[in-house]
């Protein structure tokens, strides 16, 4: 019984971070119909910037917002400088829908190399700002620490913030309109290009938060977020690639599912299972298990 509880707790923490990465991918997919493989690169660059802040000031609480803003700026720049013109240039061509996606793959490689040139390939570490040791009840220590709690709460806060933005503000309304029917939104006066860049900025900020949160556990290297990209992508697909709630649920389902496979089946099967899940979802319910009704309301 305790093992089931412990396994679930491990899964929830991992799943929270997968949700954040999934959310970052969903925000970009919704606004520009691009699967952003560069998200891992954008997040790693933002995290290194956060790491610089921590190594100079020893202050995690300063590093988190700095990385978040850096992530937003990087995201906005990627869209404004690369994706926007690429989408326009390749429109109607044979590569129309795929060219921007291939470009994000190229960008991932570029950012990784640049990060490697600046910071080197060694694994870097910084400490969690709060205890990483599990809570103890009587004589039992559970695999859930203050830091895990911070991760889960941060994820919940991010989800709430985005839900409020999308549902309650005129900016959110414009984001939804631009995602639904860009041409109609344009006719109605929505500055669709600008709004899409905002979507990329939001995604960049979210990816940065995921990177800064996971690093005390995973360490930091130019490739250290690659597997998170894959987990985030699978979580986003489970959630239907469209909805914020789908990303959250997809991340948790994947996180908990993989924790159980590692605990009860075989720890070597964790990574391959991710792809089995991806294939099963695509084969059985290609719209995702949490596909929002005609998509994009939340």
């Amino acid at each position: 019984m305790l093992t089931i509880l412990n396994t679930s707790l491990i899964g929830i923490t991992a799943g929270s971070i997968y949700s954040l990465m999934a959310l970052a991918l969903v925000l970009v997919w919704r606004s520009t119909r691009v699967v952003n493989f560069a998200q891992a690169g954008q997040a790693i660059l933002s995290t290194y910037i956060g790491y610089e802040v921590i190594s100079r000031t020893n202050n995690y609480w300063l590093a988190l917002p700095v990385a978040l803003v850096a992530g937003a700026v990087i995201g906005a720049l990627v869209d404004a400088l690369l994706i926007r013109s690429l989408t326009k240039r390749s429109a109607n061509g044979p590569l129309a829908s795929i060219a921007p996606i291939i470009a994000t793959l190229g960008l991932l490689g570029v950012i990784r190399s640049v990060v490697g040139m600046i910071w080197g390939g060694d694994l870097r570490q910084y400490k969690a700002p709060v205890s990483n040791i599990g809570f103890t009840f009587g004589h039992t220590t559970i695999p859930f620490s203050r830091y895990n709690l911070l991760i889960v709460i941060t994820t919940i806060v991010v989800m709430i913030v985005f839900t409020v933005i999308f549902q309650k503000t005129s900016l959110g309304l414009a984001l939804r309109a631009a995602a639904f029917q860009p041409e109609t939104a344009r006719l109605a006066g929505v500055k669709v290009d600008r709004i899409r860049t905002v979507g990329w900025a939001f995604a960049g900020a979210t990816g940065a938060v995921a990177g800064v949160l996971i690093t005390p556990q995973s360490g930091l290297s130019p490739n250290s977020l690659d597997s998170l990209l894959i987990y985030g992508f699978v979580a986003a697909v489970i959630g239907g690639l469209e909805s914020l709630i789908g990303a959250a649920v997809g991340g948790l389902v994947l996180g908990v599912g993989l924790a159980f496979i590692r605990e009860y089946v075989n720890s070597n099967l964790e990574f391959p299972s991710t792809f089995v899940v991806l294939l099963l979802v695509l084969l059985i319910k290609p719209g995702g298990i949490i596909a929002a009704r005609r998509g994009r309301s939340a």
């Binding site: 309304l173 414009a174 309109a177 109609t184």
Partner: peptide, 21 residues
Amino acid sequence: VGLFPDLTVLENVMIGATKFA
């Protein structure tokens, strides 16, 4: 018509007002 089916009537009309936002 070109409205956004998932949104409310008010939200649909507010989209047209974004130039004031």
